[in-house]
C-alpha cells in the first residue's frame, strides 16, 4: 500500500478535513472565550490574559498544522505545501510581533503587581507562555522556509516515468 493507492489517497485527503476542522474549532473557541468578557485592548491585564489563553491552544493548532502538511506532502500537492509555507511565515511574523508586545506587557504588569502578591506566579506564567510562543515562531519559520524550498514537481507531474531497463552495465529509461 503506497501513497499512489486511491484508498490511501482518499484517507490522506481526509487529513485535510480533520486538520482544517481542528484549526477552525480551536480558533472559533478562542475567539468565543475572548469575547465572553468585555474586550479591552487598552488594559495590560486583558492583553496578558489573551496571550496566555492563545498560547494554551498552541499545541492543538500544531497538531492541525501537522495534519495539513502530512496530507499535502502525501498527496504531492506542491501548491498547497507552498501555500502552507507562506502562511507559516506570515504566522511566524505575527506571533513574533505579538510576543514582543507580550514581553513589554509582562514587564509592565510585573511592576504594577502589589508587593504582597506572589510576583513569581506572574513571571512564571509569562515565561511559560513566552517560551512556548518563541518556540512556535522558530518552528513556524523553519517549516515555512522548508516548505518554500521544497522542489516543485509541476514540470514532471503530468509526465509518466518510463520503465527502467537494465541492459548489462547500462541503465536506460524506456518511454511508455
Amino acid at each position: 500500500m503506497t501513497a499512489t493507492d486511491p484508498r490511501v489517497r482518499r484517507l490522506l485527503a481526509l487529513l485535510y478535513l480533520a486538520g482544517a476542522l481542528i484549526a477552525i474549532d480551536q480558533i472559533v473557541d478562542l475567539i468565543a472565550t475572548l469575547l465572553a468578557n468585555p474586550v479591552s485592548l487598552g488594559s495590560v491585564q486583558w492583553r496578558f490574559g489573551a496571550f496566555g489563553l492563545a498560547a494554551t491552544r498552541g499545541s492543538v493548532l500544531l497538531v492541525a498544522e501537522v495534519m495539513l502538511f502530512a496530507a499535502a506532502l502525501g498527496l504531492e500537492h506542491a501548491r498547497v505545501v507552498r501555500f502552507l509555507g507562506v502562511l507559516n511565515l506570515v504566522l511566524a511574523a505575527g506571533v513574533a510581533a505579538w510576543l514582543g508586545l507580550f514581553v513589554l506587557d509582562t514587564l509592565q504588569l510585573r511592576g504594577a503587581v502589589n508587593p504582597g502578591a506572589p510576583r513569581a506566579r506572574y513571571t512564571m506564567a509569562g515565561v511559560r507562555a513566552g517560551s512556548f510562543a518563541g518556540l512556535m515562531v522558530l518552528l513556524l519559520g523553519w517549516s515555512g522556509i522548508a516548505a518554500l524550498r521544497m522542489p516543485s514537481r509541476s514540470k514532471r507531474q503530468g509526465k509518466a516515468h518510463g520503465a527502467i531497463l537494465v541492459d548489462g552495465p547500462s541503465v536506460k529509461e524506456v518511454p511508455r
Binding site: 498552541g58 499545541s59 500544531l62 497538531v63 498544522e65 501537522v66 502538511f69 502530512a70 506532502l73 502525501g74 504531492e76 505545501v81 512564571m124 506564567a125 511559560r128 517560551s131 512556548f132 518556540l135 512556535m136 518552528l139 523553519w142 517549516s143 522548508a146 521544497m150 522542489p151
Partner: peptide, 30 residues
C-alpha cells in the same frame, strides 16, 4: 524525498507540544 524533509519538522513540532504539556505539568506540580 520531500516527505523525508518533513520528518525533522514533525519531530520538532512533537517536542514543542511535549514541552508545552510538561511545562503545564510542572506549573501544576508547583
Amino acid at each position: 524525498n520531500p516527505a523525508r524533509r518533513f520528518f525533522p519538522i514533525l519531530a520538532a513540532a512533537a517536542l514543542v507540544i511535549l514541552f508545552h504539556q510538561v511545562s503545564s505539568l510542572f506549573a501544576a506540580l508547583a
